[in-house]
């Protein structure tokens, strides 16, 4: 495998990993503060992508397209991302309020199936309202391909990776520097005591759902730019894989979720050239459609050796007060 080939795949892996990492953050944050797997989160990603589609089409209608456009495409894109993140945050808030808060003291398993049901409701609502056909995501910016020393990079890939990393950095700053972030960290350690120091637990929970959903919306729009076809079930496999990344990263670790997201992207993308090399070396005939089988077997092996994930610590006892 030449260096060029490796670098080419690495860039693809970075892009692919960006989606996983952004979605994984939502799982990871909610799990860390409420010990709750929000299984509806993959579908929030889907809803975010569709909201992005709606916002983009609306904005394009207002400002026009092509040479007649009032503002450049990248500005429409920035506006689409920001507005959609804002709107999707409310979807997350509603899900928390309607589906999770009433079950705060219920057994964890009940809360988990609630998430699955909300997910199904979101998918089928999409079919109900939009007819379930695949929709094309508008290409807000012109695709350009750069040749850097034999490696082909598109402007979209660069933008997707940069926007993702910027969002992750912003989240990291928020969590480590602000009192809201401090409250989230405290809640991750011991949510029972949080109200005892005067911190409104529900407000922090709502905020966490909102942030997670906003990041999923960003992932949805970036995905729509790279792979411009949306369908109601796009959140299912992405959601599960991002969930794998969240657990692989370690319980509630923001850094862990990001790195594991990129790692998962890397493993998935690199499995295909790996299969090709194996085929050539040992004259085998493994199909590249076995990609996920092999990639996720690797993840399984990692978990066997690091059961708490890459950055996770052994579980702290969360006792009821």
């Amino acid at each position: 495998m030449s260096l060029n080939f490796f670098m080419q795949n690495l860039i693809n892996a970075l892009q692919w990993g960006s989606f996983y990492a952004l979605i994984a953050l939502g799982y990871s944050m909610v799990y860390s503060i409420l010990m709750l797997f929000n299984f509806a989160h993959g579908d929030i990603f889907m809803v975010g992508a569709y909201i992005g589609l709606g916002v983009a089409l609306l904005l394009l209608k207002i400002v026009g397209t092509g040479t007649a456009a009032l503002v450049p495409g990248w500005l429409v894109l920035v506006a689409t991302i920001l507005i959609s993140m804002f709107l999707t945050a409310f979807v997350g808030i509603i899900v928390e309020r309607v589906a999770y808060r009433p079950l705060r003291d219920a057994p964890r398993a009940s809360a988990a199936i609630t998430g699955l049901m909300v997910g199904i409701i979101l998918e089928t609502s999409n079919i109900l309202f939009l007819g379930g056909q695949r929709l094309a995501f508008p290409q807000l910016i012109q695709s350009q391909t750069y040749n850097i020393g034999g490696i082909f990079i598109t402007n979209k890939k660069i933008m997707i990776v940069i926007v993702s990393i910027a969002l992750m950095t912003a989240l990291h700053q928020f969590v480590t520097r602000t009192r809201w972030g401090m409250a989230m960290r405290a809640m991750a350690y011991d949510f029972v005591v949080v109200p005892l120091v005067g911190v409104p637990l529900n407000t922090i929970a709502v905020m966490t759902f909102a942030i997670g959903s906003a990041l999923a919306a960003a992932a949805g729009i970036l995905f729509g730019l790279a792979y411009p076809v949306l369908d109601p079930y796009m959140g299912v496999s992405f959601g599960w894989k991002a969930f794998v990344a969240a657990i692989l990263g370690g319980r509630g670790s923001i850094m862990g979720a990001c790195i594991a997201g990129f790692m998962l992207g890397f493993i998935e993308i690199m499995t295909v050239p790996g299969i090709q090399i194996l085929n050539r070396l040992f004259s085998l005939n493994i199909g590249s459609n076995l990609r996920d089988l092999i990639a996720y077997s690797i993840v399984l092996v990692i978990l066997v050796f690091r059961p708490h994930g890459l950055f996770g610590e052994p579980y702290s006892a969360k006792l009821r007060l």
Binding site: M182, A183, R185, D190, L196, V197, G198, V199, S316
Partner: peptide, 27 residues
């Protein structure tokens, strides 16, 4: 009305200063 719970229940992952500052969250 503040409460010093049984077993202290500090936020062990936060610094001493952060524990004190967090307690002022809603002040």
């Amino acid at each position: 009305i503040s409460h010093v719970p049984e077993g202290r229940r500090l936020f062990g992952n936060l610094t001493v200063m952060e524990n004190l500052i967090l307690a002022c969250f809603a002040r």
